[in-house]
Write a protein that binds this DNA or RNA. Sequence first.
DNA 1: CGAATGATACCCT
DNA 2: GGGTATCATTCGG
Length: 218
Amino acid sequence: MTTLAGTAATGLHRPLGRAFYARPIDALARALLGRLVVTDSADGLAAGRIVETEAYGGPDDRASHARAGLTARTRPMFGPVGHAYVYLVYGLHECLNVVGEQDGQGGAVLLRALEPVTGIELMRRRRSRPHDPDWRLAAGPARLAQALGVDRRLDGHDLTLGEDLWLAGDDVLARPGEPEAPSDIASGPRVGVAYAGGEWAARPWRFWLAGHRSVSRP
DNA sequence: CGAATGATACCCT
DNA sequence: GGGTATCATTCGG
């Protein structure tokens, strides 16, 4: 029996349903804060609380991969909500996204940072950084994916199944004010999207829990 | 410490 | 062929 201090009430093993993902993409990015990301593999169970996200819209969003339209890489972004979109950046790093939608078109939310909750030693092993403090193990999109053991084999995976990779935590719409009060949430421009220019680069579609240590850029 | 620099592979003008 | 939703390391102050 794994110790899950503070998580029993949030239903670690009960995945969020499809309806959770059906809201405007920036609202989804906000709603994901405070939820749990869970992975289950032969190596064990790992979970963390989402503390930083970024919303990416459909083909109109110049900063979004969806700007390229439907390609082999972006296919999950144009599929049903509640699936994973996993891609490689800079030839090295995997990034985990949650598929949503914007104006009936493709969209996704990049998970940028987690606070490790359980399976912390497993995360540390996967990261191969024995001296990193817990709070840094998943502070950043590539660290997050590596700590959870997420790679492109999970691209397109259905997050509502509760198998291998899923999201958990009560729906804030069903329980207003839980688990994160709006006043705890800060927002600002997305990271590394200056190339999009103008309104799209300036749009405050990055969200994080104010003052949290695991946020990738304070 | 902060800034600069590779590493590296996939995607698409 | 150029750019990239990053990170770890190395350097200089």
